[in-house]
Amino acid sequence: MTANSPEDGPDTAHRRPHGVDDLTVEAVGKLSEALETVERARGHLYSFHQLTGSADFDLGSAADLFDKAGHTGIAQRLRTELVGRNVLPGRWTFQIVEEYDEDYYARVRAAEQAARDELLQGRRHVYESEMKEARRTRGAEGHEARP
C-alpha cells in the first residue's frame, strides 16, 4: 500500500462524494456537531429525569422518617407539597423527556439525516474523516487510517 493509495485513506463510507465542495462538507459537519450537542443535552435531560425521580423517593423516605420521629406536621407537608409533585405545570419528568424526544430531538435528527442524504450520499463524519487524514502521521503506529 502506498502513502497516497485509496487503501491508505478513509473507507468509502467516510470519503467526500465526488463534486462536493469544502464549505458543504464543513456545513454538514457543523450540523452533525449540533446533533451531537443535542444528544448530550438529551442525556442530561434523562439524568434530570432519573435524579428527580430519586429525589422524589428520598422525599418520601424523609417523610416516613419524620413520621417515625414524631414530626407528623413536617411529614405531612412533605407528602402534600412535594412527594409526587409536578416539576412543571401538569408534567412529571417523563412527560418532559417524551415531549423533547418527539419534537425537538426528532426534528434535529431528521434535519441532520436529510442534509447528509441530500449532500453527502448519507455519509457520516466526512468532515471528521478529512480532519483525521490531515492530522495523522502516515506510517506511524497508532495513526492508521482504518482498523
Rank of each mutant, 00 (worst) to 15 (best):
M1I: 11
M1L: 12
T2G: 14
T2F: 07
E7C: 03
D8C: 07
P10F: 02
T12K: 10
A13K: 07
A13Y: 02
R15G: 03
R15Y: 00
P17M: 04
G19L: 01
V20D: 01
D22K: 05
T24V: 10
E26S: 11
A27Q: 11
A27Y: 04
V28T: 06
V28W: 01
L31C: 11
E33G: 11
L35E: 10
L35H: 09
E36K: 12
E36L: 10
V38D: 07
V38T: 11
V38H: 02
E39G: 10
G43Q: 09
G43A: 06
H44D: 13
Y46N: 15
S47A: 15
F48H: 04
F48P: 00
Q50F: 14
Q50N: 15
L51N: 15
T52P: 02
T52M: 09
A55D: 10
D58Y: 13
L59E: 08
S61E: 14
A63L: 05
L65H: 13
F66E: 14
F66R: 12
D67P: 01
K68C: 11
K68Q: 15
A69T: 14
A69G: 09
A69L: 14
H71G: 11
I74H: 04
Q76D: 15
Q76N: 15
L78Y: 05
L78K: 07
L78Q: 07
T80P: 04
E81T: 13
G84N: 04
N86T: 14
L88H: 03
L88R: 05
P89L: 05
P89F: 02
P89Q: 08
P89Y: 04
G90L: 01
G90W: 00
R91K: 14
W92M: 13
W92P: 02
T93N: 02
Q95E: 14
Q95K: 05
I96G: 00
I96P: 00
I96R: 00
E98R: 12
E98F: 06
E99H: 10
E99Q: 11
E99M: 04
E99I: 04
D101K: 08
D101E: 15
E102Q: 14
E102L: 08
E102W: 03
Y105H: 13
Y105P: 06
R107G: 08
R109I: 13
A111Q: 09
E112F: 01
E112N: 12
R116I: 08
E118K: 12
L119A: 05
L119Q: 09
L120Y: 01
L120E: 05
L120A: 04
R124K: 15
H125K: 12
H125A: 15
V126H: 00
Y127G: 05
Y127H: 14
E128F: 00
S129M: 00
E130V: 05
E130Q: 09
E130Y: 00
E130L: 09
E130N: 04
M131D: 13
K132P: 02
K132C: 10
E133A: 09
A134I: 01
R136Y: 00
T137G: 03
T137S: 11
R138C: 06
E141D: 14
G142N: 02
E144Q: 11
R146D: 06
R146I: 06
